[in-house]
Amino acid sequence: MIKIGIILGSIRTKRNGPQVADWVLETASARGDAEFELIDLADHPLPHLDEAVAPMFGPSAHEHTRAWAARIAPFDGFVIVTPEYNHSAPGVLKNAIDHIFAEWVDKAVGFVSYGAGGGVLAVEHLRSICGVLGMADVSRQVSISVLTDFRNHTEFVPGERHTAALHAMLDQLTAWSTALAPLRHIEGAEYEDAEQLSVTH
């Protein structure tokens, strides 16, 4: 069974993200077509990108980056839960994405966003970022308004349309994650060969 990581992309205090991510996890886990696991960036603190070379050139010298890579590597696809900050995604989420490379390649990604306008501008930026990393972003997404979908702007109250949209996105995500498995096998073998070559030379 494929494994899907649900990445909670905000670490600010009093964030609304955990309510949304928990709803995604609970709804997704009841489907039975994949294993779903929450990845909270608050549990994986990373400094501002401090690598000497680009992540595509091999394993990092830093333990925090290697630990993050090991956390992400086992998953076949991802749901990114993101707020919208100033018409884009949170810097901490971009930083976490930038820390690694091979662990993202040939994996599918879907988006659940929230904000005053549903977080759609954050998703537009993330789509272009994920595309450069060789990820397949599915077209369906879930957009949540903090103005109308949160009681008193603090308590998330998902409606039927949100659940329907989530299932539609997960249908695509699980199908694409499964279809990309042969490519991940090839890319993984090539990455391991390149890593061994860099060690021996």
Results as ranks from 00 to 15, higher is better:
His64Ile: 01
Val79Tyr: 02
Gly58Gln: 02
Val157Asp: 11
Ala116Tyr: 10
Ala69Ile: 02
Ala70Leu: 06
Gly77Ala: 11
Gly159Asp: 09
Thr82Cys: 06
Leu166Glu: 00
Pro90Ala: 08
Gly134Glu: 04
Arg71Phe: 01
Ser88Glu: 08
Arg140His: 08
Ile97Glu: 00
Ser128Leu: 13
Glu160Asn: 08
Leu170Trp: 02
Ala73Trp: 01
Val79Thr: 06
Asp171Ala: 05
Val79Gly: 04
Val109Met: 09
Leu133Ala: 03
Phe150Asp: 06
Val146Arg: 15
Gly115Ala: 14
Phe111Lys: 06
Phe150Pro: 08
Met135Gly: 04
Trp176Thr: 14
Val81Lys: 00
Ile80Gln: 01
Ile129Ala: 08
Tyr114Ile: 10
Ala67Met: 04
Val146Leu: 12
Phe150Asn: 08
Val146Lys: 13
Arg71Gly: 00
Gln172Tyr: 05
Ala96Ile: 03
Glu84Ala: 12
Phe150Thr: 02
Gly118Val: 01
Gly131Glu: 10
Ala102Met: 02
Val132Ala: 14
Phe156Gln: 07
His162Asn: 03
Asp171Glu: 08
His87Glu: 12
Gly58Tyr: 01
Ile72Ala: 06
Ala179Pro: 03
Thr148Tyr: 07
Met135Asn: 06
Arg151Trp: 09
Gly110Pro: 04
Ile144Arg: 00
Glu160Gly: 13
Thr82Ala: 08
Gln141Tyr: 06
His167Phe: 02
Pro55Arg: 00
Val112Asp: 13
Pro90Arg: 07
Ala67Ser: 02
Leu126Gln: 04
Ile100Thr: 14
Ala89Pro: 10
Ile100Ser: 05
Ser143Cys: 13
Ala67Lys: 06
Ser145Cys: 07
Val112His: 13
Ser60Glu: 10
Ala168Ser: 10
Leu121Thr: 13
Trp68His: 06
Ala164Gly: 04
Leu93Gln: 02
Trp104Ala: 09
Thr178Glu: 12
Lys107Ser: 02
